[in-house]
Every structure is written in C-alpha cells, then in structure tokens.
Amino acid sequence: MRALRIILVVTVILGGLFVIADRVAVGFAENKAADRIRSSEGLAGTPDVSIEGFPFLTQVAGGELDDVKIGIKDYEASAEGAKGAAGGTIRIDALNAEMHGVRFNGDYSSATANSASGSATVSYAELLKAAKAQPTEVAPAVTAQVVGLSDGGNGKIKVEITATVLGKKLRPVSVLSSVTVVGGNTVKVRADGLPKLGVDLVEGRIRTVTDFEQKIDGLPGGIKLDRIEAAANGVAISVKGSDVKLVG
C-alpha cells in the first residue's frame, strides 16, 4: 500500500511538471509565431496568437498543430475603390482567424494551415471612401453625393445622400442597400430602390452615386472574403481560406 501511494505521488508530481513544461513551451511558441507574423505581414503591432489543444508538446512532435487563433487589430489591407474613388489601403478594425491543421518547421519560420475561417470588421467611415463622396451630376442642373453610411437593420446599409437642384441644396435622403461579396475580394453595395430627390432621374445615372464597390485584397496568407452584412458599427465580414500560408 505504501509503495502504491509513493507511485501515485510521483505520478502526480511528474504530471504537474509535464503540464508546466507544456504551458511554458506553448507560451514561447505563441510569442515566436506572433513575431514571425508581424514581420512577414509588415504589421505595426504584434498580433495575438493562441495555440489551442493540449498537450502542445505532442502536437509539436507530430509537426502539426490542431488549431491556432490569430487576432490582428487595425490591419491595413490593399484596396481599390470604384472608378473615380480613392484606392490605396483600407483599414480593417479587427481581423480574427482560426487556422486548422497548421504545419510548421522547427524554428516557426514557415507555417501553413490546411484551412482557415474567421471574421473581419470594416467601419462605415472606411467603406465610405469607395462611395461617390464628391458631387456628381445625375441630371441637368442636379448633382448628388453620398455623405454617410450606417446600419439600416436586417443586414442592410443605409446610404445617406444629399442633392443640389438648380443651386439649391435639398435635405438629405436615404436608401437601404444590400451588401454582398463578389469574387472573394470585392464588397458590393447596391441600393434596393432609388432616392426620392423630387426630380425625374435616369436610374443608370443615379446609381453611379448610390451603388459602389470596394476591393479588399492582401489579407494574411491569401484569406478571402466570404459573406458580409451590415452591423452596428460597420460591416461584418466572414473570411475563409485553404492552404493558408501564415509565415515563410
């Protein structure tokens, strides 16, 4: 009986030491991976990296991690707006992704995930850069421009428009617009109806103002846009990818 108690005590101690060693190792790996991602993506800040699953050391021995979560704030993605709109970059307030089946080499200089899924948030102020924010002629002596975007409810965007008719500025009007993802890298906003400006308008002309697109490219590892809907503080985008290269 005494020998059994000794074996149990030793087993518990060794198990505790293994857990401590495992957590120390995973912490080191998370920090190392975060530094590699920051360097390879040219990030201003260090991303949050969380390696899921236990034990970590047995995953390392197999050369593949089950799940790795990555969080990046204020990510600058490459962007190209609609014709006549600003391009350059677009800021993603929060980009979160969960990588599944992450294969890596010994010094974490190379890592590729079998698949990835996650979310991204873009503020309405950023998305507004792609809209026709400058006065655009939509009829003789009539100009219109987009002055604001906001949550319209039920996944719709409310597009606020002002118009000037014969030199007189009208009160702002708004339309509800549907927002979709096209081709894995383009956010498309299209008005469900036409704004009532008090004058006869050709649909094609006014839609050059109400409707617009915003490309969002250059997400980490080649992740693509999947689905999108309007939310309280901006558009909420789901992202996904396969054979996602994290670093290297």
Rank of each mutant, 00 (worst) to 15 (best):
R2F: 11
I6P: 00
V12E: 02
I20M: 09
A21M: 10
R23F: 11
V24H: 06
V24S: 08
A25Q: 04
F28N: 11
E30G: 08
E30K: 10
N31H: 09
A33K: 00
L43E: 03
A44L: 08
G45W: 08
T46G: 04
D48Y: 06
I51D: 02
E52N: 07
F56N: 03
A61I: 13
L65W: 10
V68L: 03
G71R: 05
K73W: 00
K83M: 04
G84V: 07
A85K: 12
T89Y: 07
I90K: 03
I90Y: 01
M99I: 07
H100A: 07
R103Y: 11
Y108T: 04
A111D: 02
T112E: 08
N114Q: 01
A116N: 00
G118L: 04
A120Y: 03
S123D: 12
S123F: 02
A125N: 15
E126M: 02
K132G: 05
K132R: 15
A133G: 08
Q134G: 07
Q134D: 12
P135Y: 04
V138M: 01
A144W: 05
Q145W: 04
V146E: 00
S150C: 07
N154D: 15
K158F: 09
V159Q: 09
E160W: 09
A163I: 12
L166E: 15
G167C: 04
G167Y: 06
K168E: 09
K169W: 05
L170A: 14
V173S: 11
V175Y: 14
V181G: 13
G183S: 13
G183M: 06
G184D: 01
N185A: 14
T186L: 11
P195Q: 12
L197N: 12
E203V: 12
I206A: 10
R207T: 15
F212V: 09
Q214S: 12
D217I: 06
G221F: 03
G221C: 06
G222L: 00
L225M: 10
I237T: 12
